[in-house]
Each structure stands twice: as structure tokens, then as C-alpha cells.
């Protein structure tokens, strides 16, 4: 799950966007593209010092001005589940491959080296959610 695919999967989800200048935008993601340009709806804008607030119906943010986005914690799990479902569906549609050891990653388009590792096998030495 590449960072930008995660962003795509966050459509209609609430998020907090902080710009490089420190301003923050709280709202629901309407749409995004591969430049990380985004549109939000029902936005609360906060100035960099945190002392001024604005309410915006909808706003567009150019990707290059973003510092980071905070998305719901549940999003990663939701996306993983969705991928698993899609894989199962694809497998059964192609007619019952009995899955075995060498089968990992076949049902899913393989992305960069890193993308797979966050997949079915979690944990490693990281302190995840204890899974």
C-alpha cells in the first residue's frame, strides 16, 4: 500500500492536513491526485500559531504545500481487508487455485519492493498493534 494509494483510499474520510507554513486544515477528503493535490469539504482552518480559525465549505490544497496528513488509525486495516477481499474474489473467479507456499503475491499486482512487506505479515520487530 503506497502512501498515495492510502490517500486515495481515504476519500470521504476525515483528516487533518498541515501545510509547510504550519496552517492546518481539518475536513473530509473529497478528492486527490498523484501530485497530492487535494480537495476537502466542511473544513476548519487553523492559523500557524493556533490562535485564528476559519470555517470553509470546501477548499483545494496544492500538494506541494503540504507537510503531512493525519488520517484515521483504522484506515490501514480497512484497506488491508479490502485488498484481501479483492484477492479472494479474484482467486475464486479464476477457479480455485489451492493456495500454497509459493503463491504469495500472485493475486495482487506487485508494486515496489517495500509495498508488499506491509501486507499479510505484520509485526517484525516493529511495535505494531500486537498482531
Amino acid at each position: 500500500m503506497l502512501p498515495l494509494s492510502l490517500l486515495n483510499a481515504a476519500q470521504n474520510k476525515p483528516m487533518l492536513v498541515e501545510l509547510k507554513n504550519g496552517e492546518t486544515f481539518n475536513g473530509h477528503l473529497v478528492n486527490c491526485d498523484n501530485f497530492m493535490n487535494i480537495t476537502l469539504r466542511e473544513v476548519y482552518q487553523t492559523s500557524a500559531d493556533g490562535d485564528k480559525f476559519w470555517k470553509l465549505k470546501e477548499c483545494y490544497i496544492r500538494g506541494s504545500t503540504i507537510k503531512y496528513l493525519r488520517v484515521p488509525d483504522t484506515l490501514l486495516d480497512a484497506v488491508k481487508e479490502e485488498q484481501t477481499r479483492a484477492r479472494e474474489a479474484g482467486r475464486s473467479a479464476r477457479g480455485a487455485h489451492v493456495s500454497g507456499a509459493g503463491n504469495r503475491g500472485r493475486g495482487m499486482p506487485q508494486r515496489g519492493r517495500g509495498a508488499m512487506r506491509g501486507g499479510p505479515i505484520r509485526g517484525g520487530r516493529g511495535r505494531g498493534r500486537g498482531m
Binding site: 500500500m1 503506497l2 488509525d73 509495498a115 506491509g118
Partner: peptide, 25 residues
């Protein structure tokens, strides 16, 4: 460590060629 000096600790779940990062927990 971010350019504004902030220090974040989390589990790296994903990244891309721009070093965009996904940090969990």
C-alpha cells in the same frame, strides 16, 4: 525528524520514491 524540527516515532508501513512515508501508531 521533520524540517520544522518535529520528532515523530512510529512504525514505518510504506514509502515511495519521494520518501513519502506512512507511519502507524
Amino acid at each position: 525528524v521533520l524540517r520544522d524540527g518535529r520528532k515523530l516515532q512510529g512504525v514505518l508501513r510504506s514509502y515511495d520514491q519521494f520518501a513519502n512515508l506512512v507511519l502507524e501508531d
